[in-house]
């Protein structure tokens, strides 16, 4: 066993050769940490995740991960008219370990129910996925990642636009995952939230900063990360990134 579960070195790439969306990304993450990925829209947060999932068409540099990462997309990228219930969606987390001709294992079905329970949705197992609220859907997608049981979990703005109950529940699950020694990378617009986590990566086409929140989240760094999108509140100690994109 040598080293850290997540190592990214000199990563650059984009969706076509010669058109980099992201440059100069290097960081190392330890087991049992939560890392906030901050940046404006188009700053490269999703691109970084796609590179870590080995799905970026043009990619240079090193990405070394233990295991295959789980990915939790934004819930509005799923098809709400698809005929599935919440439990069906969670069970998708077991697909890659089930041969096509086999039924899903009993153990996976039980585990899927347990995962729904962990995100506080045990009662919603039989409800149609598309009929759930945005926050509930986000929790179902997180439960699916729990069932995947990956050492590394990438979450794309899991807390944007969710209700308070869902947000609290998701926060609690993050703490549990950290206690289980997993590595979480969370794309977010919420600078205050990032302060409570272990590491911060700031992206604006390139890596602006990486480190512990206390060192990284300075007004100067945030200003070069967000540019004109940044609103600095009274005292200069609090900064809020304004989310311009609408769903």
């Amino acid at each position: 066993m040598s080293g850290s579960p997540v190592v990214v070195e000199g990563l650059a790439g984009g969706y076509a050769a010669g058109a980099d969306v992201l440059r100069g990304v290097s960081f190392t993450l330890e087991a049992g940490t939560i890392t906030a990925v901050l940046g404006p829209n188009g700053g490269g947060k999703t691109t970084l995740f796609r590179a870590m999932l080995a799905e970026l068409p043009a990619q240079r540099g090193v990405v070394r991960l233990v295991g295959r990462p789980a990915y939790v997309p934004q819930t509005d990228r799923t098809r709400l008219d698809f005929p599935v219930n919440a439990l069906d969606v969670v069970l998708m987390g077991a697909y890659s370990r089930t041969p096509s001709w086999r039924r899903l294992a009993r153990a996976d079905r039980d585990a899927a129910r347990a995962c729904l329970d962990r995100v506080g949705l045990a009662d919603a197992a039989r409800r149609r996925f598309g009929a759930l609220s945005g926050g509930q859907r986000q929790r179902v997608l997180i439960a699916r990642a729990l069932l995947q049981d990956s050492p590394v979990v990438l979450l794309d703005e899991p807390l944007s636009g969710v209700d308070a109950v869902s947000a609290a529940r998701i926060d609690a699950v993050f703490d549990e995952l950290r206690a289980e020694r997993r590595v979480l990378l969370v794309a977010t617009h919420d600078v205050e939230q990032a302060r409570r986590w272990d590491r911060v990566v700031c992206l604006n086409g390139e890596q602006v900063a990486f480190g512990a929140p206390a060192e990284v989240l300075t007004t100067a760094v945030l200003r070069s990360t967000y540019g004109a999108e940044l609103v600095v509140l009274a005292g200069g100690e609090r900064a809020v990134a304004v989310d311009h994109h609408s769903h």
Binding site: L53, R68, P73, R79, F82, V84, M92, S96, L141, Q148
Partner: peptide, 18 residues
């Protein structure tokens, strides 16, 4: 069946799910 379902339900996450 399962691969078809993943690919259409959740295009973004489908590769990480197989």
């Amino acid at each position: 069946h399962r691969r078809l379902a993943l690919s259409v339900f959740d295009r973004a996450a489908a590769p990480s799910l197989g």
